[in-house]
Computed example of a mutant assay.
Amino acid sequence: MSIFGKSMAFPPRVGSDGRFVWSFGETNIRESIAVILRTEPGERVGVPEFGAGLARFLFEPNNAATHARVQDAVGRALARWEPRLAVEALEMAADPADAETALLTITYRLVATATRERITLNIPLASA
């Protein structure tokens, strides 16, 4: 058993053996981050406050003020819903190749091993 636990893989899928695919270790944590950031509050019946609520920023301008609000929402959501990691840095900037996208880089430390990880996500926004 992994020190990070396991859960159904995200997105859910069936393996070649006809069973659901499970996710373990660091992959499970990256998938958990994706679930938290892609979920809107109110989507989960049993936990209506779950999620980061990033869809509310979809038509906001791609500028420093919006970036700060997105970073705050992501930081709060990950701190609340993913105890296996500690966010060390959130950096966000407009994507130079696409005026309607910002790049969010999350640097985090795995609590159980102190391993540092980094992921970069595309966040859709309106052009500034």
Results as ranks from 00 to 15, higher is better:
Met1Ile: 09
Ser2Pro: 05
Ser2Ala: 08
Lys6Ser: 13
Lys6Ala: 10
Pro11Thr: 07
Pro12Trp: 12
Arg13Ala: 13
Gly15Asp: 06
Gly18Lys: 05
Val21Asn: 00
Val21Ser: 00
Ser23His: 07
Phe24Ser: 03
Gly25Gln: 11
Glu26Ala: 13
Thr27Arg: 15
Thr27Asp: 15
Asn28Pro: 00
Ile29Leu: 14
Glu31Asp: 13
Ile36Leu: 11
Ile36Glu: 11
Leu37Gly: 10
Thr39Gly: 12
Glu40Phe: 03
Gly42Phe: 08
Arg44Ala: 10
Val47Trp: 14
Pro48Leu: 14
Phe50Glu: 09
Phe50Thr: 07
Ala52Phe: 07
Gly53Trp: 03
Leu54Pro: 06
Asn62Phe: 00
Asn63Trp: 00
Asn63Val: 01
Ala64Leu: 12
Ala65His: 10
His67Val: 07
Val70Glu: 03
Gln71Pro: 01
Gln71Lys: 12
Val74Cys: 02
Leu78Cys: 03
Leu78Thr: 06
Leu78Tyr: 07
Ala79Val: 04
Trp81Cys: 03
Pro83Lys: 10
Leu85Phe: 06
Ala86Gln: 11
Glu88Leu: 15
Ala89Phe: 10
Leu90Asp: 04
Glu91Tyr: 01
Ala93Ser: 03
Asp95Cys: 09
Ala97Arg: 09
Ala99His: 06
Ala99Gln: 07
Thr101Phe: 02
Ala102Thr: 06
Ala102Gly: 14
Leu104Asp: 04
Tyr108Ser: 06
Tyr108Cys: 11
Arg109Met: 06
Leu110Lys: 06
Val111Gln: 08
Val111Trp: 04
Thr113Val: 06
Thr113Arg: 03
Ala114Trp: 08
Ala114Leu: 03
Thr115Ala: 12
Thr115Leu: 04
Arg116Gln: 12
Arg118Lys: 11
Ile119Lys: 04
Thr120Val: 01
Thr120Ser: 12
Ile123His: 01
Pro124Glu: 12
Pro124Asp: 10
Pro124Cys: 06
Leu125Tyr: 00
Ser127Phe: 07
